[in-house]
């Protein structure tokens, strides 16, 4: 199995075997050590078993007594586990440790998407986004999670373990991204119909890039600069989209669905399901219930192609 792990350890955007942070690294080594150790023990036990079956009776006789059990079944595991247990506890102590000065982020799990809030820090204002976590490389991150409905679980394999999002409780997860890149997080606790389609992007940026991104996010939504986009905004208003979605700087202030102020800047839509472009946005609006059945948003199939393009174009322009 260890070889299989090594082979599969190639880069993955959602893999515990491709650690991109200290905690994930620590757990990765724990995994490797336990896998190698486990494999050796496994080979030893099956080797003894086969020896007991196939070796000549006089050669295997030494194995056929109580001593085998006392040594192999009692003493050996006690020694091995007496080492493993403190090691595991030490890794546990050093993993997921709160650090002063960490970047706070609040994430709320909802059926079937993620509400993400960056609280105000010094002069930088707070803002809401969704289905995307952007973090600076090198600075510890402190994520507080909870749920608005059922239990979800917040898991970014490349950065460390998962933490459940439980209604009525606030849990926290600490990690540090140490390599810039694009990763993927996912809901790990079964949360209903579309549990399978509840993921999010995690983007680790260099600190300056992160600050730039953050400044952009704090700003209100960009004004449409083309007639088509202005029409899109009008459709957004008249279509009642604002009763569920907020676009800061406009009258749309719904709190039920994801904040769309900078939806155009996100990599994907539908909670990590599709790349973000006018085509997929239009498809999403017209066909949600087909592509993500039982998501909370209804399909708006009655929009004409023209209207759909305008609406999607407007959203796409909200960089």
């Amino acid at each position: 199995m260890s070889c299989a792990l090594a082979v599969a350890g190639c880069s993955g955007v959602q893999s515990a075997l491709d650690p991109a942070g200290g905690d994930a690294q620590r757990i990765y080594w724990l995994t490797v050590i336990m896998t190698v150790g486990g494999t050796l023990i496994f080979l030893l036990v099956t080797g003894l078993l086969l020896y007991a079956i196939f070796a000549a009776p006089e050669r295997r006789a030494w194995l056929g007594g109580r001593r085998t059990i006392v040594v192999g079944g009692l003493a050996f595991p006690i020694v091995v586990l007496s080492v493993l247990l403190p090691y595991g506890l030490t890794v546990m102590r050093d993993t997921d440790v709160p650090t002063p000065g960490a970047l706070p982020i609040e994430v709320v799990g909802e059926q079937y998407w993620w509400r993400v809030r960056y609280p105000a820090e010094q002069e930088r204002g707070e803002f809401l986004t969704a289905n995307e976590l952007v973090v600076p490389v090198g600075r510890p991150v402190f994520v507080s999670v909870t749920s608005a409905d059922v239990i979800h679980s917040f898991w970014i394999p490349n950065f460390g373990g998962k933490i459940d999002m439980i209604p009525g409780r606030i849990n926290r997860l600490n990690f540090t991204a140490e390599r810039p890149g694009i990763y993927r997080g996912v809901c790990a606790e079964f949360c209903g119909d579309q549990h399978a389609r509840m993921a999010f992007d995690v983007i680790a940026l260099e600190p300056e890039a992160f600050e730039a991104w953050r400044l952009e996010q704090v700003k209100p939504a960009r004004e449409p600069d083309l007639p088509l986009l202005a029409r899109g905004r009008e459709l957004f208003r008249t279509g009642g989209c604002g009763s569920c979605h907020a676009v800061r700087g406009t009258e749309a202030n719904g709190q039920f669905g994801p904040d769309l102020t900078h939806v155009g800047s996100r990599r994907t839509i539908g909670a990590g399901q599709f790349p973000n472009n006018i085509g997929t946005l239009a498809g999403w609006i017209a066909n949600v219930q087909h592509i993500k059945p039982d998501a909370r948003m209804p399909s708006y199939g009655s929009l004409t192609g023209e209207d759909l393009r305008a609406l999607a174009g407007y959203l796409e322009s909200l960089k």
């Binding site: 194995l63 059990i69 079944g73 009692l74 595991p77 586990l81 247990l85 595991g88």
Partner: peptide, 27 residues
Amino acid sequence: SAASTAVAVPSGIQVFAWIATIASGRM
């Protein structure tokens, strides 16, 4: 965690008891 590792010991005992039995006879 401690209890979960501890419970491996009795399972180990049983596995080695079967191995020892097999070794002492002819399977």
